[in-house]
Nucleic acid binder design. Structure first.
Length: 665
DNA sequence: CAGTGAGCGAGCTTCCGCTTGACTT
């Protein structure tokens, strides 16, 4: 009897179908040892010796695994083939006290892949394990050394880290670009044209003037010139353009697409994907690889040829970007020939699961299809000294668009000949303004993080949650990210005093070092040393140099409603707020006006209603005199009162206006 | 349905990455 240990129980279940009775399969549920939570756990004076502990959750797993190892004559570690997977194998070996564990890896879950892997076991690669330890320890040092600095200099409970602090920085920088942005006026002129002989054909088309126009008077002058001009076709260029399908989904692209199409937050997408994975509908959903198993490709080919015809089928192989760790396949349907409709009918799937499966299936099938083909025409029209351009695009062959529909505009142009003279129908000038850059959505933030190799498939969604829970950023009404006051304060401190850590290149540089460790060219303790010494020296200096952030205390001429002393504005963990200058004798606090809704509190008559958030970040509306007055509502008050009972009218989430008094009808 | 600040100096906050399941909207 042999014991095989994998990371995911679902993966275990799947491979058990391919292995005989001689194999017992258990899973580790991810990492089973880690640095302790309450201390640094790294002996920086002693070669960075880490202290590993088994978290409470993993204790049960370890107990079961240990019991199982005693009943078998061989233990096979089949964790993922990447840095973290190698480290898990090593931690398992250490925690279970294994003598000669066999280490195997496979990238796809098929019978041949697994039996090949079993025939070629190796030993644990300590260099790769060391690269993981270096990564882990660096992250621990950055997070657990800078966060306490922020507690001392700003406010308790704050945090900093290699990944989260860069994410916040990107959002703050974007906000500053927007603040700095000044819209500039510009004008465009479009000509609506048609052929001269148009007995049966009244078709018009538009052409755009190729000219930069800043001001209205310039536009008017050009229009005056153009009114008298002849419109002559000077150039006709016809060509075929092609559009290739997209590669199959990785975690990051799935999250982005689910956001674009369904407005699913990354976290939600992952939960639905997990359900699909557990039901056996899709391959593993945390991956950065676009690899596809040979079997899936041949099923796709057959399916496409029999459903749409041979001319739609095209074998395509995709290459993952440089840093991908390739432990898994791309995210694809487990059974490519199971169409979304048949699957949703045969199994219990809710709407969200159906929607997500649908795009995964379409994306995968489309990635093995031919390109879409367009007839494009570009024409140039001369009018006096000016040039207009018009573009036509007509879909000639849909190719992959048959299963992966996308928006594109079809423009039809009439048949034209060189030197043909056209009739002008009208000239349309329009005023425009340059647009500020747009704030990040979950999708665009994940995209830029991935492009810079910051974060991993398993962490994109948690990172987005963390920086919101810390109150560094929040979603506005368009569901785009804006930094909070405290987010800006913390970011500016990090950028000023720890510029290297929040540099977008920091992770890339770290990865280079980790690669050297994994290749055996560099010792991990040396890399840690090289990072830590200057880091710590700088940190100690900053403890002395940086003053506590209290410059933000502003006096006001407002009176404290409790004791009559004046109020001050202070900076707390949740941003600015009013506090009594008589603190600590008087502990009165209240919200700033800009958060107030300008509606009197119906209960205490003193306070105003203000937007607040629960611990779970849910928005509600409460009295700004809290805790003296505990009036609160879930729905937004409109400011008007009910005619029947004089209670406040509220607007529900469904935009209905109701009375806040539940007894009032 | 809910916080923030100072200092006394108790005990606490915090990272990233791998998993799933316990909750809730």
């Amino acid at each position: 009897m042999k014991l095989v240990i994998v990371e995911s129980p679902t993966k275990g279940k799947t491979i058990s179908k391919f292995l005989g009775k001689d194999y017992k399969i258990l899973s580790s549920f991810g990492h089973i040892r880690d640095l302790p939570i309450s201390t640094l756990g790294v002996d920086v004076e002693n070669n960075f010796k880490p202290k590993y502990v088994i978290p409470a959750k993993a204790r049960k797993v370890i107990k079961e695994l240990k019991a199982a190892t005693k009943k078998v004559d061989e233990v096979i570690l089949a964790t993922d083939e990447d840095r973290e997977g190698e480290a898990i194998a090593w931690h398992l070996s250490e925690a279970l006290g294994l003598k000669n564990p066999k280490r195997i890896v496979f990238h796809e879950i098929t019978k041949t892949a697994i039996s090949e892997a079993l025939k070629n076991p190796r030993i644990i690669n300590q260099d790769v394990v060391d690269a993981q330890q270096a990564r882990r320890i660096l992250d621990r040092i950055v997070g657990y050394k800078i966060s306490p600095f922020l507690w001392k200099k700003v406010a308790r409970g704050l945090s900093a880290g290699r990944v989260q602090s860069v994410a916040v920085k990107l959002i703050v920088e974007k906000e500053r670009e927007i603040e700095k942005f000044k819209p500039e006026e510009y004008w465009t002129i479009e000509a609506e044209l048609k052929k001269q002989e148009t007995r049966n054909n009244n078709q018009t088309f538009t052409a755009l003037l190729k000219e930069e126009i800043k001001l209205e008077k310039d536009a008017n002058k050009i229009i005056k010139d153009l009114d008298k001009a002849d419109y002559i076709v000077k150039k006709i260029e016809k060509k075929e353009t092609r559009r290739n399908p997209f590669p199959p989904f990785t975690t990051s692209t799935l999250q982005q697409e689910a956001w674009k199409r369904f407005k699913f937050p990354a976290r939600f997408t992952m939960r639905i994907a997990q359900q699909l994975y557990e039901k056996g509908n899709i391959t593993y959903h945390r991956t950065d690889s676009v690899n596809l198993s040979g079997m899936s490709l041949s099923i796709a080919k057959k399916f496409i040829e029999s459903s749409y015809g041979q001319k739609y089928s095209k074998l395509r192989k995709y290459k993952s970007k440089g840093k991908a760790q390739e432990a898994h396949e791309a995210i694809r349907p487990t059974f490519p020939d199971k169409e979304p409709a048949s699957l949703s009918a045969s199994r219990r799937m809710d709407k969200n699961q159906q929607a997500l499966y649908d795009i995964i299936w379409r994306r995968f099938i489309a990635c093995q299809m031919t390109e879409a083909c367009f007839d494009s025409t570009a024409i140039e029209i001369r009018a006096g000294e000016y040039i207009f351009k018009a573009n036509g695009q007509i879909l000639k062959f849909d190719g992959f668009l048959k299963v992966y529909p996308m928006k594109f505009k079809e423009e039809e142009l009439p048949d034209l000949e060189k030197n043909e003279i056209l009739n002008l129908v009208k000239l349309v000038p329009s005023q425009h303004f340059t647009q500020p850059p747009s704030r990040y959505t979950e999708a665009s933030l994940i995209k830029i993080l991935e492009e810079n190799d910051i974060g991993r498939p398993s962490t994109y969604a948690p990172i987005i949650s963390t920086i919101q829970v810390r109150n560094y950023i929040e979603k506005n009404e368009q569901k785009r990210f804006q930094p909070t006051e405290i987010g800006i304060v913390v970011n500016d401190i990090l950028v000023e005093h720890f510029p290297k850590i929040v540099d977008i290149e920091f992770t890339a540089n770290m990865e280079e070092d980790l690669d050297k460790i994994a290749e055996g060219k560099q010792k991990w303790t040396k890399v840690s040393e090289a990072f830590y010494r200057p880091f710590n020296e700088n940190l100690q200096e900053k403890y002395k140099e940086v003053k506590k952030k209290e410059a933000s205390i502003e006096k006001t001429d407002k009176e404290c409603p409790k004791c009559g002393k004046f109020l001050v504005i202070r900076m707390g963990r949740f941003g600015k707020f009013y506090a009594c200058s008589g603190f600590p004798e008087c502990k009165h606090t209240q919200a700033l006006e800009k958060k107030n809704l300008g509606i009197k509190c119906p209960k205490c008559e003193n306070g105003e209603l203000t937007e607040k958030r629960t611990k779970r970040k849910k928005i509600f509306y409460g009295c700004n005199q809290f805790p003296d007055c505990d009036f609160a509502l879930w729905d937004k008050p409109t400011g008007k009162k009910c005619e029947k009972c004089d209670s406040l009218l509220i607007e529900t989430k469904k935009k209905q206006i109701k009375c806040s008094n539940k007894d009032c009808t």
